[in-house]
Design a protein around this nucleic acid. Structure first.
Lengths: 212, 212, 212, 212
DNA sequence: CATGAATGAGCCTTCATTCAT
DNA sequence: TATGAATGAAGGCTCATTCAT
């Protein structure tokens, strides 16, 4: 039981956040099962034992990571919807700008990868993300599109499918960056991509003369 | 001690394929690290030792799974491109129909999830998928779009971004099904989704009168 | 994952018994919590992993150890009772001889120590021993004593207390051997002790002239 | 930051005793290895660190617990012996009454369980109990019996075995209470049991007419 | 070829012990 | 003194891999 070296570096209260941050990085890199507590602890600058002062199990850490990434987006979605009551184009541009920013400034990409990758092992996480975030976001977009259809602004068609179409390139951009850029793929300029996507979505790829 | 043999004796030659098929199912469900050799062997109907007659390590099996799912798509992509020299709309409709079919009839969704989820742990897999499949597919689509722009068929804009936009809803559909449908999300009708996507992409969401 | 050395020494089927035997020795020496799986495995001549081919957890091994020691005694108790319908003295002498033999030829002493020591941590074990062995043994003895009282053979008094008194020196002998002999205490000649105990119990310590 | 002190501030001098008392309870319940310092500290109402102000190690606490329970009995044994120079019956009745009282009013039962259970892990504890208590008690009883035999009061026979027989039911009563009563066994009335034991031991189970 | 019992390195988790405050 | 956050060695358990049969 002999030990050595300096023991106490910082104080509690910020520890959980530090551990979650370190865990996010490790989980995003390795996935849940391949992530080692040693790595998480080392990255957080604490001993392995210290992690267990704040979390019961490795799974708890994982849930904390995912929850922490989820929370701010839930409120952001609500705010976004309320902020654009006008023409659909305004909403889409606002959403694209916001998503572009979120993607570039938060680790949401890595978390999303984890949610997708571990959905079968942690169904409750997939459920929470679906019920608390995705359903609301997609529902709001679907509602806005339905309203725009009623206003004679948008073409007929399944509004839920339109909504999915709207956000799909965001996913592409995220997964592209997480998956292929590290092995040499040419990156995308996400904000520019999303801007172009919105305009194309609104008025179509084809020039007037080429339309059927 | 079996004397009267079974009617249909499993032929040895198929063993590797059977193992890969079983491994695909297990890996897609659990991810690489959480998948157990026992499960793969049991699902393949062989002993754990038999797996090692055909594969050196668990990683080898994983690579075989991913490679096997990759191969047919590489040739399909080349064929698809050659098949639609005409208007872009024809190509997009053809691609959408093909992808819709592939998604619904092959386990590509689960494999894609694996590739994304394990890209950091198996960079060479991500690299192979990128170099042998994605780059070609995206490049071909980009080329087709560039050509259509040159023909005065498609609007100006970054053709690579247009290409990404084109296939993005396929990803959405796949991940939606793999991630959220198992926890109760409403599924999408993928072929219908893709059909609507193509038409919308071509001519835009907005009605003539609502355009700027 | 490189290994070395000879792998397979014996075949299954006797493995569980070998492990239980080894575990009995280790548990009896260390107690449940302080016993190490490594020690049990090493003593059984197998690897740590092999133990888990036959038992789910350390607790399972413990239960198997205790159960295995319990079983033969249950049947022995029934046989003992049936074998002595006559005068109480015959029964007592038979029981004493049997117990003396069991104590000297089986590890029941160590197991008893474990049952007592872990009764609070494994209440179900204490319960099984009580319900399946102790209650029957004590009940049978109580019944025999009650019958002897009815026959005018034995003095009035609480027959259950008499029964307890009957077997008490057995416990003393066991615990003496398990606890104090290893640290230098003078051992008892258990069969002789029990013989003297029975005769004394039947007719008393005091000589005729010294009785009140 | 406490300003108005509590009415009864815990006096420092009692801390060690409080810790030992708490430790006794925890050790008696869990055994040495399974007892946690956290539990002991919590039960004593102090912090874990405070325990280490008074004891070097967990083993030290254990020894203190056992020693504390041992000490008063050593002196009691000496007093008991000196107090009954007369007929053996008087001594036995006195001893029985005393033991019955000790068993019912002190935690000696739990301590005894610990001594037995940990004798192999802490041989020096078993040795101290044997050398300082058991040998003296048993020796004194053996001496008294030998003297009674010399006086023509007691039958011939191994006086040490007689002595063991004398105290055996005390053990039975203790272990019964510690082991089986918590899982539903019918308790014994210990004082009554010991009273009956002494009388039976003196004059025998059998009625005059039934004797050989 | 095929089996599956056996191996042992590795990892999550616990907890006695330490020490900055 | 007293606290309790922090440490890290240790141990239960898992599972990829091996090999006698």
């Amino acid at each position: 039981m002999e030990t050595g070296g300096p023991k106490f570096r910082r104080r509690k209260a910020d520890r959980p956040a530090e551990i979650v941050e370190a865990a996010l990085a490790v989980f995003a890199e390795k996935g849940f099962a391949a992530a080692k507590l040693d790595d998480i602890a080392a990255r957080a600058g604490v001993s392995k034992g210290a992690v267990y002062l704040y979390f019961e199990t490795k799974e708890d850490i994982f849930r904390a990571v995912v929850d922490q990434a989820l929370a701010p987006n839930i409120t952001a979605v609500r705010a976004m919807i309320a902020a654009h009551p006008g023409p659909l184009a305004d909403l889409l541009r606002g959403v694209a700008a916001h998503l572009g920013h979120v993607i570039e400034t938060t680790p949401i990409g890595g978390v999303l990868k984890m949610v997708v990758g571990e959905a079968r092992n942690f169904p409750e996480i997939a459920r929470v993300w679906h019920d608390d975030l995705v359903v609301h976001a997609l529902g709001a977009m679907t509602g806005a599109i339905t309203a725009a259809q009623a206003r004679g602004e948008v073409k007929p068609g399944d509004p839920r499918a339109f909504a999915l179409q709207t956000v799909a390139p965001v996913l592409m951009a995220v997964l592209w960056r997480e998956t292929f850029v590290p092995v040499g793929a040419e990156p995308f300029d996400v904000p520019a991509l999303l801007r172009q996507h919105v305009e194309t979505l609104l008025t179509g790829l084809l020039l007037e003369d080429a339309r059927p």
